[in-house]
Design a protein around this nucleic acid. Structure first.
Lengths: 202, 202
DNA sequence: GTCTATATTTAGATAGAC
DNA sequence: GTCTATCTAAATATAGAC
């Protein structure tokens, strides 16, 4: 009688769990939360619907995990770019560009993270992550004000506006994803960002 | 055997229907779409759940009607302010102020219209109305550019950004609805709007 | 441990009584 | 015409076989 799982068993279980989360993420990116039923996700992962409950106590728990992992990656990337050395306004501009490009490369996932109808538990996570985006932007705006490069303003409100603006533009980008359109979109978005924070525009 | 309903009957039916829609709107503003079940709405209107189907063929149809009426009022107000005489930038600023004040006076409804999780049919309506907001803003930006008061930019993208920014700021306004906070919020929001479209800031 | 089959829950929709 | 009671459908969750 094994009172403890062997290391190999643990690895195998974790791998199965990770695989499940990865497949669920793909399903969500393709069809959205509402249509990502337990059985659809299980099918994608090649397991039975019932087996999902070996890894997660509920569908909501799985959905939250999917959201946290995917959104966490974006927060991390955003944080890295915003905390890189350089002038705050320049960092902000770079951050928006990176964020936009990543979103446009995986629109389905971006839509799921930013806007797609979702169950309450995911909605709560989304609010939480929006606050994180907002805080990151607000930091940069504050720094810009402190160094006199940006005009006086309520940094939190500007940051909220920025995240809303970027989200809206990325979620419904009017037209096909041609690469030329992507370039224009990114250029316009960064220009809008600089205007929005009040960076002097030439 | 009456082949036609009498005028009195028609009036009564229409009144009942309007009352149902009004009550449903209140319920949605209070508890959101997800929890506005047919029975909850019927209770609020003082009728039985089954009776709802005398007026609407499905819950989705009722929800869409609720959304259209409420959102339509906002589009109309926005259009009036934006089409009033005066300089485009000034009109834009006024429009954002009016929009924000209306939203802050009925936050529940504003949240329901702008962001609350909703069934697909309502989501589709929301997209449609966002496009209308966007078009209205885009018009003003175009006029501002045409008259040389605003810098060159993609008006559609700026308009999308604006509507996203305003929505985000209004939906999660960080803190209690004290009237002083409302004034600051409106002031910051209009200032942000002007910066966002590139109006020269003093 | 994983699958199959089933139970449970919830909400939308309907039918027949009054 | 409106209400009561019921039906249906979908999706989550569980139980027991292998």
């Amino acid at each position: 009688m094994a009172y403890r799982k062997t290391p190999a068993e643990i690895r195998r279980l974790e791998a199965a769990r990770e695989r499940l989360v990865a497949c669920a993420t793909e399903v969500v990116a393709e069809v959205g939360w509402a249509q990502a039923s337990v059985s659809a996700v299980a099918d994608a992962a090649g397991i039975a619907a019932g087996s999902v409950y070996q890894h997660f106590p509920s569908k909501a728990a799985l959905a939250v995990e999917v959201f946290r992992l995917a959104a966490g990656r974006e927060v991390e990337v955003l944080g890295e770019v915003l905390h890189a050395p350089g002038e705050p306004v320049e960092r902000l501009s770079r951050a928006v560009e990176v964020f936009a490009r990543r979103a446009l490369e995986n629109r389905g996932l971006a839509y799921a993270l930013l806007a797609a109808p979702a169950e309450p538990a995911v909605g709560a996570e989304r609010l939480e992550f929006r606050r994180r985006y907002r805080s990151l932007f607000a930091e940069a705006v504050q720094e810009g004000m402190a160094s006199g490069r940006l005009p006086r303003q309520n940094g939190e409100i500007t940051a909220a506006a920025l995240s809303g603006a970027i989200g809206e533009v990325l979620v419904d980008p009017l037209g096909a994803p041609e690469s030329s359109a992507v370039e224009e979109l990114v250029a316009e978005l960064t220009a809008m960002t600089l205007r929005c924070v009040g960076a002097p525009h030439n």
